[in-house]
Amino acid sequence: MASEPSSQKTLGGLVDDAAAELLVRENIAWMLDLAERLLRDRGLAEDVVQESLISALRGLGDFKGESALKTWLHRITTNTAISKLRKLKRVAEESIDDYLPVFDQNDCRLELPWTQLVSLQELLETEEIREHVAKGISTLPDSYRIILQLRDIEGYSTAETAELLELSTDNVKVRLHRARSALKKLLEPALRGEMQI
């Protein structure tokens, strides 16, 4: 830390202390939420947010104002969280084959009849189901879960997700589809209205 290039100090110095504190206070809570969603661990999320905010304050000179400040911070936090997952080797290959759709030898889908598909509104009414869904998402291997979260929940496009994860867009599409299919399988009892509450 002591041998840091002086240019970084100057950039950081562009924001006065009060402005820096305001930026931290206004954004730390949602950034912690985001990091915890991506990492599923509060302690790791705190590390990631600390690292992200420090680098944001130092790099504020690079912030061109082309995107909203929140969008910029969102990306920094997401990037830092992904590096953290990589370091922990949690984005390793894991199979979710058991939860994928099945077909017979003639390529016909094997799917139990759906006599009931519970409405979204009804599903959201029950706290147990909300917990069940959050748990279902956590059950997915990180390499799939992270794509589902970036695309379906954090609102990144396929191209942006591919860039963040250094994957091809085709790979992102395949994994996103598998993640959604697997999650559907995991949530089936709730979706069919057969969950014991």
Binding site: R37, P101, C108, R109, L110, E111, P113, W114, L117, V118, L120, L123, L124, R130, V133, A134, I137, L148, Q149, D152, I153, R180, S181, L183, K184, L187, E188, L191
Partner: peptide, 21 residues
């Protein structure tokens, strides 16, 4: 019927995940 049901449940899954998170 199988694919129709499958797709409906698949879409409900996405909506549910989005609404909850």
């Amino acid at each position: 019927r199988e694919c129709r049901d499958y797709l409906a449940a698949y879409q409900r899954t996405i909506e549910l995940g989005q609404s909850i998170l």
